[in-house]
C-alpha cells in the first residue's frame, strides 16, 4: 500500500485482501473491547453474543419476515419514485421549458428531509404500508429528478449535432442520443438513491411500525438486547452491500461500451 503511487491500479487479489482485512481489524477491535471487558455488556454486546442473538432472531422470532417486509418496502417506494422521476428528469434535461417549470420547486423540495415528514405522514396515512412507501418516495423522487435532469442536460452537444446532421428529428435525438448517452449515469444515480432509501425506511420503521428491521431494532432497545440491535444493523449493511454489488454487475453488463 505504501509502495503505491497516485492513481496506480492494484491487482484484484491484493484489493480483495485489503478490503477484507479491514473487516477483520474491525471485528478484532470490537472483540477486544467487549470480550476483554473494556466496555460494559449492557451497552455493547460482543460479536459472539451478537451472532447467537441473530440466530435466535432468525430461527425463533421470524426475523426473516421482517427482513422481507423491509426489503419490499424499499423496493416498492424506490420503484414508484424511479418510474415517476426518471421520465420527468429526462424531459427536464432535454427540454428547457420543462426544466424552467419544475426545477425551482424540485430544488426546494429536495431539501425537505424525508424523515421530518414522518409525523405528518402518520397523521395522513397511519402507520401502514402507504406511509412507509410515501417516506421513501418523498426521500427519493426529487433527488432522482434533479440528478437525472443534470445528467441528460449535460449530454455532449457535438453528439446531438452529429445526430441532427444524420437526419435525426427531435424525438430521435431524445430517444437515441440523450437517453443512451446518460443511461450509465442514470443507473449510477439509482444505485446511489437506493442506498439513501434504506435510511428512510429504517427511520420510518423506528418511528412507527409493527414489522420490519427498524421495528425489531426499536423493540430490542426496550429489552436492552444490544446483540439483536447490532445484528439488525449489520443485516441492513449486508443487504446494502449485496444490492450495490448486483447494481454494479448489471451496470457493467449493460454499459460495456463505457467500462471497457
Amino acid at each position: 500500500m505504501l509502495m503505491s503511487r497516485p492513481l496506480e491500479p492494484i491487482a484484484l487479489a491484493w484489493r480483495v485482501a485489503l478490503g477484507f482485512s479491514f473487516f477483520v481489524l474491525f471485528v478484532a477491535t470490537w472483540s477486544i473491547a467487549t470480550l476483554g471487558g473494556f466496555v460494559s455488556k449492557t451497552f455493547l454486546a460482543d460479536p459472539i453474543t451478537m451472532v447467537q442473538d441473530g440466530w435466535t432472531l432468525l430461527t425463533r422470532f421470524g426475523f426473516v419476515a421482517d427482513i422481507a417486509i423491509t426489503i419490499s418496502r424499499v423496493l416498492g417506494g424506490f420503484l414508484i419514485a424511479s418510474i415517476i422521476a426518471v421520465p420527468i428528469g429526462i424531459l427536464m434535461g432535454a427540454y428547457k421549458p420543462v426544466e424552467a417549470f419544475f426545477e425551482p420547486f424540485v430544488s426546494f423540495a429536495r431539501y425537505l428531509p424525508a424523515s421530518a415528514f414522518i409525523p405528518l405522514l402518520i397523521l395522513w396515512a397511519g402507520i401502514g404500508e402507504t406511509q412507509k412507501l410515501l417516506v421513501i418516495f418523498i426521500g427519493s423522487v426529487f433527488q432522482i429528478i434533479l440528478m437525472v435532469a443534470v445528467s441528460v442536460g449535460s449530454t455532449r452537444r457535438d453528439l446531438v449535432e452529429a445526430a441532427y446532421t444524420l437526419g435525426a428529428r427531435d424525438r430521435g435525438v431524445v430517444q437515441r442520443v440523450l437517453i443512451p448517452a446518460s443511461a450509465p449515469d442514470i443507473a449510477e444515480i439509482l444505485r446511489l438513491v437506493l442506498g439513501w432509501a434504506w435510511t428512510y425506511v429504517i427511520v420510518a420503521e423506528l418511528i412507527g411500525s409493527s414489522s420490519g428491521i427498524g421495528h425489531m431494532i426499536i423493540d430490542s432497545q426496550a429489552l436492552l438486547a444490544t446483540g439483536q440491535m447490532i445484528f439488525g444493523i449489520i443485516v441492513i449493511g449486508l443487504i446494502g452491500l449485496v444490492s450495490d454489488f448486483l447494481f454494479k454487475m448489471v451496470n457493467k453488463k449493460f454499459f460495456r461500451w463505457r467500462l471497457t
Partner: peptide, 24 residues
Amino acid sequence: MVFQSYTLFPWLTVAENIAFGLRE
C-alpha cells in the same frame, strides 16, 4: 458532416454508428 472532435456515439458499435442515419 464529419466533426473536428470525435463524435461517434460511444454506446453504438462501428456498424451501428454507420447505420445511425439510415435507421433514423
